[in-house]
Design a protein around this nucleic acid. Structure first.
Lengths: 192, 192
DNA sequence: ACAGAACGCTACGGAAACGTATCGGCCGAT
DNA sequence: ATCGGCCGATACGTTTCCGTAGCGTTCTGT
């Protein structure tokens, strides 16, 4: 067998990455230990070190493997509807389940680990890009002034949602997404 | 001597709290160790345990002692100016120096330590109250509709600033504060 | 079937870090 | 001046975790 299924080595590697992500989500980066990863994954500690040089490298790879799946953003021609679709999908993909649970710990660890820092920054910018695209399409349609500060607009939209989730630790409801989009757009939009 | 200066015990206690706050700001809650606190503060480890039952208790007390000093918010009668004054002062008081450096680590640790959780929540709500007061005054003046969602408004204003600092790790400039206030108000205000 | 690669298990050495015990010395109030 | 209380220093036992070694076993491709 070659392509159809995984080799033994790949299976072990994947189990380790998965258990690592689980642990990071549960107890945070700092409290994640190799011994516990070994227990959870069923992979012997020795084998873990045959795949990953150190705990830091393992965590970075595990987080990297946790790429969030952004659902397709609708392109209805309505800026409001597209933004709601975009942020509704994005918040679910970013803040539900494992990925959401590890966010704070990752951002904290990223302050001291340059590698994690780059990773977290890249993920943040990647997420902003989805909203940027929606806004740029609206500018192209003439629904927003050509000199609109896109970066600021993305921050005005993302900020309240991220703040609600990470700082206030409240769920991001569809109502909140709509309210944020509507409030921000009411100060900007030529046409909604 | 009694009231004028501190007793020996109080001096030691204060030195420990101070060193703890410094360390939390520098290396985070998890990497803060009693041994290092002893080194920094010049207080013997034995003495630290005479004052504080455990590391967790010590961290909570140290953070609690780090109450941020909110500068007086102007009451000019202009909602815009008062909000800019409020958030400009608040972001400086919250995100400059030690207090800002420990924020992410605290929020992460607060996910697992209920005591820290309560403390962080209380601090968050306390900060929101400054903005809430400014907005309520504007409602009383008739500068905002009486049925305005104050909670949402505070989130719309705080979110982008907190997000800029904690997630994007960029400085909060006066220009950003003005831009956020103006953008949000342009969708709401009856009179600025 | 066979050889080599990969894995599991147990054990180990070393480093941190927690929290405690012991004792000697200094401070501060009477 | 003296005495009780607080502090400092050192050392200790314990736990936890890292990362490695050795060895037998299991899988995998030919």
């Amino acid at each position: 067998m070659a392509e159809s299924t995984q080799t033994r080595s790949e299976r072990a590697r994947q189990a380790v990455l998965d258990a690592t992500a689980d642990l990071v989500a549960e107890v945070g980066v700092e409290r994640t230990t190799i011994d516990e990863i070994a227990n959870r994954s069923g992979v012997a500690k020795t084998t873990i070190y045959r795949h990953f040089a150190s705990k830091e490298v393992l965590v970075v790879e595990a987080v990297h493997a946790c790429t969030f799946i952004m659902p397709a953003v609708t392109d209805t021609g309505s800026l409001r509807d597209d933004l709601i679709s975009c942020f509704s999908g994005m918040t679910k993909a970013s803040f539900d389940g494992r990925l959401g649970a590890m966010t704070l710990s990752l951002m904290d660890a990223a302050q001291r680990d340059p590698e994690l820092g780059r990773l977290v920054r890249a993920q943040t910018e990647q997420r902003r890009r989805f909203a940027t695209d929606v806004i740029n399409r609206a500018v192209a349609r003439g629904d927003l002034p050509v000199d609109v500060d896109v970066d600021l607009l993305v921050t005005l939209l993302s900020g309240p949602l991220v703040y609600t989730k990470l700082v206030r630790r409240q769920r991001i409801t569809d109502e909140l997404v709509s309210a944020v989009v509507d409030s921000v757009l009411s100060g900007y939009a030529v046409k909604t």
